[in-house]
Amino acid sequence: MRQFLSVIAFMLIVIGSFSAYSNLGIPQIEPAPPPTEEVIDLGSMDMGQFLALGDRIFNGKGTCTLCHNSLGRAPMLDQIGSNAQARLDDARYAGSATDIEGYLRESLTDPSAYVVAGFGKAGTNDTESPMPGTESGSIALSGPELAAVLAFLQDNGGLEVTVEIPTDMGDEATDENAAEPGEPRAPFTSFQDLSDEFACEACHTIGEEAGDLGPNLSAIGATRDRDYIRRALLDPNAEIAEGFEEGMMPDDLGTQLYATELELLIDHLSQLK
């Protein structure tokens, strides 16, 4: 019996130490939650917001930085400005694009149409791209999302942005209340309208609506003061709420919101206790 117990104890200690090491010995990284469709309101978007959307998708849902990073797995896209024309001029080029925008679009929708030399799947002699198509499968960007990424790629590569902001969401419903682009919109006067407009609840839980990409705001007034909330809205990346990703929370609210709207948001949030 004594033998038996010491064997049991030994095994429990071993298992316990494996668990302890996995919990304490290595950093606990919270994997990102599954991607969700961005709530996009094209009607009220200016080019700055559109590019910001592209940036977010590029770094987030699109998983582009998984490969397009400094580790040499895929071409660096900040150099696409100088590279794209060279691709089109390449004798190997057999795709159907005629201009740079077309080349970029084709790279995203049909990656194997042209494979940058040295980056093809092993053994395919650069005829097959390891890059997944971005319209379907695991990335599955919608039409406007794809356009936003294209615009971002052009901007980021130092090219002139020729992509236009799509006027509708494709098969998705458009927001009837949206003002025409260029026309100044009337300020919103209720929190709910503001929240709907800026899709706060797509990421945050506020009362009944549940979003989990950002912190729960249902009782934010209990722990945060007005100054903190103001900062969180105007300069979200200055301080990142624990356990969340940087760069998710829109950082251009300052230019989007009327002053009255900003105060309204702060008033409302600071009262949620």
Binding site: A32, T63, T65, L66, N69, E245
Partner: peptide, 18 residues
Amino acid sequence: LTNSELKSLGGPHHSILG
């Protein structure tokens, strides 16, 4: 790969070091 390095490398999805 500390948490902040992970973030600074890329988006919320997978920011990977080789």
